[in-house]
């Protein structure tokens, strides 16, 4: 080990290990998009429009109760109303529900909604064609707006999912 090469060998090992550390630091950040992809695959927190399968037959043999929830983070600024506490839907049937968003403030505000499903597996069977959660909402002072949501419940939805919940949490736009 007294050979003159040892110092270089040590530096080489150190360099490799530093790279490993750097890669792992990057990995922590890579987990952000990875988590999104993972959620997309498992269906948790899915927020993009779904391609509608061409072959949509309605399964009239059963009904799924879809509960609609609306939450606002800042109750003083906004009011978000679900059209009903729950609506029945046949798997495969195209459903439209109109949420209502109202700006209670005297100035224009922007915000957006985050969709969430319970039980988590239910997300996999929601095919949303139109949703206000796809984009930012800008409301003028005291404006009231109807926000349609169009979705189809996948016919693959297991029979034991008799009640599913579609929940929206509305957040005021945060400064970036």
């Amino acid at each position: 080990m007294n050979a003159p090469g040892t110092g270089n060998a040590n530096a080489r090992v150190r360099e490799r290990l530093l790279w490993l550390a750097l890669v792992m630091f990057g990995f922590a950040f890579a987990m952000v998009p990875l988590y999104r992809v993972f959620c997309d695959i498992t269906g948790i927190n899915r927020d993009e429009a779904q391609v509608l399968a061409i072959n949509t037959q309605v399964d009239t043999s059963r009904l799924v109760l879809v509960q609609l929830l609306a939450n606002v983070e800042d109750a003083a600024q906004w009011r978000l109303n679900a059209p009903a506490a729950a609506i029945p839907a046949h798997p495969g049937e195209l459903i439209q529900v109109d949420f209502e968003l109202e700006n209670l403030a005297d100035r224009a505000v922007s915000g957006h909604a985050v969709a969430s499903y319970a039980p988590a597996v239910a997300a996999r069977y929601f095919r949303k064609i139109e949703c206000f959660c796809f984009r930012e909402q800008h409301l003028a002072a005291r404006e009231r707006r109807v926000l349609p949501v169009m979705f189809v419940l996948d016919r693959q939805i297991p029979p034991d999912l008799g009640v599913v919940t579609l929940s929206y949490a509305f957040f005021r736009q945060v400064k970036t």
């Binding site: 506490a85 729950a86 009640v163």
Partner: peptide
């Protein structure tokens, strides 16, 4: 434990710092 299907009653519970809110949806 994970089978939340076919309930008779649904209650929404919201946590606040430091209290709970109960909402009988139906």
């Amino acid at each position: 434990q994970k089978d939340t299907g076919n309930p008779d009653l649904t209650v929404k519970v919201t946590g606040y710092q430091w209290k709970w809110e109960y909402d009988y949806l139906q």
